[in-house]
Simulated scan of single mutants.
Amino acid sequence: MFRIVLITLTFIFSSFVHSAEKITLANGEWAPYLSEDLKHYGYMSHIVSEAFAEEGIEVDYVFLPWKRGFEDAKEGKYQGSLIWGYNEDRAKHFLYSDTVADLGTSLFHQKGKTIEWSELSDLKNYRIGGVIGYAYGVEELEKQGVLKIDRIGKDVGNYKKLAAGRLDIVLEDTEVGHETINRLGMADKLTAHPKTLQSRKYSVIISKKTPGAQALIDAFNRGLKKLKDDGRYQQFLEASRRGEYKQ
C-alpha cells in the first residue's frame, strides 16, 4: 500500500514539474533595470521572473538589440518582451501587463550650458540624442517633425557626442543617465536638467501571436501584485540602488 501511494505521489509530482510552463522573453541592455551583466539580469528582470514564478511560470531571457527583440517577439518567435511603454502601434501586436515601472526622463546636458524650456515643443531648437526603440514621452512630437531626435543603437555613443558638443541634449531615464555618466567618468562634464519630462509607465508585453497570451498577462499581473503586497518589489528596487545587482 505504501509503495502504491509513493508511486502515485511520484507520478503526480513528476506531472506537475513537466506541466510547469516555461516562456522566453526578449530582453535588452538598460542598466540598472535590465542587463545581461547584472545579477538576475537586473532588478527589473528579477521582478518579472519572480512575478511569473509566483504563478508557476519559468522565464528565460534572450538579450538582443531593442528593435530586433521587439520584432522577433511581435512575430511570435518569443512570447513577449520587457519592458515597454504604451503606444497604439505596439498595442496592435501586443497585450500589456499592469505597470511594472513608473519612470521619468531627464534632459542631460553639458555642465555650464543652459537648456531653457517650459513646453516640450521648446526643445525643437536643440540637437537631441536618443536610442532606437526607446520611448521618452516625446514620440508624438517626433512623429510630427516638431522634434528631431538623432537615435542610435547604444546610449554610450550619445554621451560621447554630448561631451564633445555634437549634441545639446541626451534624453535618458534619470537613474540610468546618472549611472551611465558616472560609469563613463563624465560626471564632471555632464549633468541633468532639474526639470524632468512626464513620468512613463512600462509593462511586460506579450505577443498576440502567443497561444494563451491573455492568460500569461493575467498570471503575471497576479504575481506582480503579490510582490508589491509582500514588499519584495520595493526590496529589489532598494537592493539595486545599493549596487547589490552588480556582478
Rank of each mutant, 00 (worst) to 15 (best):
I152S: 12
A192K: 07
A91H: 11
E54D: 07
A215N: 12
G185Q: 01
G137Y: 13
I181T: 01
D102M: 10
E54K: 14
D188F: 03
H18I: 03
G112C: 15
E238P: 00
E175S: 12
D89A: 10
G112Q: 13
E88G: 03
Y134C: 11
A215P: 01
D173V: 13
P194N: 12
F94Y: 11
F52V: 14
D37M: 07
D98P: 01
T99Y: 02
E75G: 11
T174Y: 15
N158Q: 12
K246L: 15
L216H: 05
E244G: 06
F108M: 04
A53R: 09
A219H: 05
I12D: 07
G137E: 14
I205R: 04
V48Q: 07
I83D: 09
S203P: 01
N27M: 11
L171D: 02
K113W: 05
S14H: 07
H46I: 00
K124F: 00
K67V: 13
F70I: 08
E179R: 08
H93L: 05
S15F: 13
E58T: 11
G104T: 13
H40P: 05
E238Q: 12
H109V: 04
L237M: 14
L107V: 05
A26G: 10
I128E: 00
D102K: 13
F236H: 14
P211G: 11
P65N: 10
S45G: 15
T8C: 13
R183P: 03
T105Y: 12
W30N: 08
D150R: 02
Y136N: 10
S203D: 00
D229L: 01
Q235H: 09
R3M: 01
V48W: 13
R222F: 03
H46W: 00
L38I: 06
P211C: 12
Y86H: 05
L103Y: 10
D122C: 12
L162T: 03
K22L: 06
G69T: 06
I149T: 10
D188E: 09
F70H: 13
I57G: 01
V17D: 00
T210P: 06
Y134F: 15
V176P: 02
K148D: 05
T191P: 01
L224G: 04
A215C: 07
W84Q: 02
L103K: 13
E58S: 10
E55Y: 01
I149G: 09
L34D: 02
V156L: 08
W84V: 02
P211D: 13
L38S: 03
W30R: 05
I12R: 09
G112P: 14
V156N: 04
R232S: 04
K39H: 10
S121L: 03
Y202V: 09
F70V: 12
F70L: 15
G243C: 15
E172D: 15
L82G: 03
S45T: 14
A31V: 09
A51D: 11
L224Q: 05
Y43I: 00
T196D: 10
I12L: 15
D168P: 09
L123M: 06
K225V: 10
L120N: 15
D218P: 00
K22P: 01
K228S: 03
E55V: 02
L38E: 14
L216N: 06
K74V: 00
R242S: 14
S19C: 08
F11W: 06
